[in-house]
Design a binder for these strands. Structure first.
Lengths: 232, 232
DNA sequence: TTGAACTCTCTTGCATACAAGAACTCTATC
DNA sequence: GATAGAGTTCTTGTATGCAAGAGAGTTCAA
């Protein structure tokens, strides 16, 4: 239905090399953990290519902020600092607020129907207490909304940001917080209402409030994860 | 005083390779024109290195949207489409609006004083009718404001955007439009007032209105340039 | 036991050779 | 004159070899 969009979403002239996508997915989904060494030679053997394309992909990932290349030492999976996470949630709020406003301006488009359907399915997920399905639907809701803004540059920046946040991992943790499920669904409904009434300002405002609320939960979850790793 | 910031501004662990910066500057400042071929071999000879580092830099520039690499054909300086320019100005509005809000929240910081001084100098430039100096001060105003938001992720995204817009070229064209100089300066003053009164919402609103206004002028100038190139 | 120096290994950085393909040019043919 | 085709040339894509440096481990001396 909806493209994954965290891992792959650009519709550019040059389709992304499979290598880059696979490496990025490994990082974003947590197959490799922050601090892990991504050695070019080892990866080259794993993927059965030479170091050259591996190297290009790693350099690209460095620019995306997912890894850190230390000259003549190694390439390591990067972990955003608390400050960076906070900064990125500010950006997320701005991006999605902009998207909501643009979408409201566009009026009735297919994406709006997709959002309505999403909320309907979310309602069922909430009733069944299916947190995992709901988490997936949340991701779909937000990416559909941004896609509906019909602004490719926005999408590019947004995808970049979401990859850095390793968003879906944080979201699934966030939603385990008690009561957050029902709140989140209601907020989604309010967003759709504002968009449907073609009020860009209201749409942006509601959207930003929603992102701010979930950001707070997410930041909390991220901080909690931090504590669990280093209990001392 | 203020770092150029269009060409170089990141304070990352890995300092940017000189090659990348030089190539980027060549594109942003118009030394090489859209459509021009950037052949790896030729550049390697010019810069007296092998193709490998050149290649890395070009790949990076591709990700930044400044060049287009067509496999086995060539790497070409890219020209944003009218649609992309429009999209990017939407993003610019969101970024600078966010920055103004964040800066207002921070209160009295050195950057605020820099902004005040900037407006004072701009006043002089307007009185003297020095459009070039004013153009430079405009650039400085906006980059100081974003820097003042104290959000590195925002700065990264903003720099990326500005490079794609080859912003200063467009600005200098824009400001030649009659009456725009005085208007622009007054708007800058209004932005500072809003920030000084520590009203994030007002600051964001005024900022966004300002960006929207200058965007309209800039888009017009870009369109005009387009027409001049292809008169038929 | 501690510390310093040295060596050894592993990493990325860079240069280069070769492969593959796109596009242009020139020629032959209709 | 127009067009199809082959060949040439230019481009980027990939593999690989070597250089340089960081860092861990070891050894030796105090």
């Amino acid at each position: 239905m909806q493209e994954s969009s965290i891992v792959e979403s650009k519709a550019r002239s040059n389709p992304e090399t499979p290598l880059l996508g696979r490496l990025r997915q490994m990082i974003v989904t947590g197959v490799v953990q922050p601090g892990d060494l991504l050695a070019e030679t080892a990866l080259a053997q794993d993927f059965e290519v030479s170091r050259t394309p591996i190297r290009e992909a790693l350099k690209q990932l460095e620019r995306e902020g997912l890894v850190e290349v230390r000259a003549r030492v190694g390439t390591f999976v990067r972990k955003p600092t608390q400050r960076e996470i906070h900064e990125m949630f500010s950006l997320k709020e701005a991006f999605e607020g902009l998207a909501a406003g643009l979408l409201a301006r566009r009026g009735a488009v297919p994406e709006l129907d997709q959002l309505k359907e999403n909320v309907a399915r979310s309602q069922q997920a909430v009733e069944r207490g299916d947190a995992e399905l709901y988490s997936q639907l949340v991701h779909e809701f937000h990416s559909t909304l941004v896609a509906g803004a019909d602004n490719r540059k926005l999408s590019e920046h947004y995808d970049l940001l979401m990859n850095q946040l390793a968003y879906h991992r944080i979201v699934s943790q966030t939603l385990s917080l008690p009561g957050r499920l029902q709140n989140s669904k209601d907020e989604h409904q309010a967003i759709i209402d504002a968009i449907s009434s073609k009020d860009p300002l209201a749409a942006e405002l509601v959207m930003r409030r929603h992102v701010a609320a979930s950001s707070q939960s997410a930041a909390l979850a991220a901080m909690k994860e931090e504590d669990e790793e280093q209990p001392g």
